[in-house]
Design a protein around this nucleic acid. Structure first.
Lengths: 324, 324
DNA sequence: TCAATTAGGTCGTGAACTGTCCTACATGCC
DNA sequence: GGCATGTAGGACAGTTCACGACCTAATTGA
């Protein structure tokens, strides 16, 4: 009656996303239309590529099942908050290959998230963000807001203003045209054209402060090496130290693989109950020491010396903490 | 022409969710309709409660902004995978108050996730799931699939069949009517009516194996105490041991709060650079020891003795691991 | 000032939507 | 084997609504 067809279709979609079965009569009742129209609407959804499965016979009904295309997700408040918090927690530490998509999804969600929910996400999110890094590491945590602002500006071709902290601690203001946001290991980088310096730069996102999009759009230039990721690697490689891990474990290779994060790679077996791991770690050995400690198996650091130092330091701290 | 109005509205919604501005002419071009119709469609979206902001003047355009209601999210493949993986990672360890919503959202997403994406989620997800618990703890990890199956069956009022491992290790098959899935601390519980035993039971989800919904729907009975959560507490409380933590830190209360997970509560300051924490821990002290180690500040275990033992054990292991 | 954009009114044509019939078919229960 | 209850879908009539074309007003940046 008063509600037009598109609105009704959206409402139907939201009802069908509930994990239960809906008999046509109940849908007709909820949508305030005849049963015939419900059947027609279901047909329309199927035409759109969202397969609605109908179980026939007595106490049959409709339910939305997996198809070729993902239907628009209709979320209630709590679910939206849960997703936002989950993505924020995951945005920082990354899941090996989907970091950029994760940030894109977060930016998309936060763009339309009602402000009352935004507050809840903020309070829950800050309580959680430390959970991922465990408060350890080198303190180079990134605010999820920063990532989403950068992602939005990048894909919207909007100029970006922020303050940047150089390696010597000096802060400068920058006006840039952002091109690509890249996640590499535990770090995020922004490849952008610096309008003040009049040249291309790679920025470490954890050193970016108070970013905001000016609203002015820009016409994309050509990236120097043709590929932003390549440019990032070329400019960053010389600066970032990396360490070659060498650790032996008193447990089977399978056991160790299961208990370590996948980014560590797989150890080679040196016996039924022992194995040896060679791996490359970005730049924070404190983080590596934590992960090794959390594995819950006996191990010995063969190298480098810096890692042994970190592990020893942590061990002494714990020994001190426990009264005999 | 060939595409009807509802489909076009959905497409428009998906375009506007991209974090950029769309001039009306481009939208008209993409949607294959006149500019007038685009304006009408935008009006329709606004009527539906999704505020489309238009910037006037030269190089103006439309973009979707935060409003009162959350619009249906239109995600591309990668974003959907990112969200699913993020939720899976978060589903197990929980974020203090939104665990149930998180699982609900995951169930909703997985219900309609195309199978090709499901595979990607599985491969990425298994690599990640161990990340949260770090492989430590008592090994009582829960497969995200288990949680989503239980959640779907619970909210869909479908009978549930699964195998259950009792405390003595014996596995039995159960046919149940699930009523509520509850997250308490690090554990998940399912309150259900056991059709074989003909009585109400609380199941620990980490001991549930191979759950699947039979498809048969059931009419809800009344939960014994009136509230499922209360029933869960009543049945579980006597079995689960809990410990009273007492730890002093050589750091400010604010610092310690920031570096510990929120479930630990807040310590009381005993000086400018020292504080004391009293807290109750569910049942795994190994986990508590890990979290304390990850805080990165000096501390001393005052009690209980079991915690001191765990911390000491971990400390000795690390000291052994580091060659002097 | 000019150009480019959103905003919105009106009108006529034609398509599309809805409800009310109708029949066919599948399933579970008695 | 019936019977109740559900989906599937065709035909039809009346109404509504969606679309494009054309118009004017208002806003903004160069």
């Amino acid at each position: 009656m008063t509600t037009d067809t598109p609105a009704r279709l959206l409402q139907l979609l939201s009802l069908l996303q509930t994990p239960r079965e809906w008999p046509g009569s109940e849908l007709a009742d909820r949508l305030q239309v005849s049963r015939r129209t419900v059947r027609r609407d279901v047909d329309r959804l199927r035409d759109l590529g969202y397969p609605v499965q109908a179980t026939m016979g007595a106490d049959g009904g409709y339910r939305l099942v997996a198809g070729k295309a993902l239907p628009p997700l209709v979320l209630d408040d709590e679910e939206a908050v849960a997703i936002a918090v989950g993505l924020r927690a995951g945005a920082g530490h990354a899941v090996e290959g989907i970091e950029e998509a994760s940030v894109r999804a977060l930016a998309k969600l936060e763009q339309v998230l009602p402000s009352r929910l935004r507050h809840r996400v903020n309070t829950l999110g800050t309580a959680t963000s430390s959970l991922v890094y465990g408060g350890g590491g080198d303190g180079a945590t990134i605010a999820p807001e920063t990532l989403t602002v950068l992602a939005s500006a990048t894909s919207g071709h909007e100029r970006l203003r922020f303050s940047y902290e150089a390696a010597d601690g000096a802060r400068t203001r920058r006006l840039t045209e952002p091109y690509r946001l890249i996640s590499a290991g535990r770090r995020w980088y922004l490849v952008a054209y610096d309008l003040d310096r009049d040249d291309w730069r790679t920025f470490r996102v954890d050193r970016v402060g108070d970013p905001f999009a000016t609203g002015a759009r820009f016409a994309p230039r050509e990236v120097p090496t043709g590929d932003a990721a390549e440019f990032m690697r070329a400019t960053v490689w010389r600066a970032a130290p990396s360490f070659e891990l060498d650790v032996t474990f008193d447990a089977s290779a399978a056991e160790v693989t299961r208990r370590l994060p996948p980014s560590f790679g797989t150890p080679e077996a040196t016996g039924a109950d022992s194995c040896r791991l060679h791996s490359t770690v970005q730049d924070s050995l404190e983080w590596a020491a934590m992960r090794l400690a959390m594995a819950g198996v006996d191990f010995t650091v063969q190298g480098p010396a810096e890692l042994a130092e970190q592990v020893g330091k942590l061990g002494r701290r714990l020994t001190r903490a426990a009264p005999r």
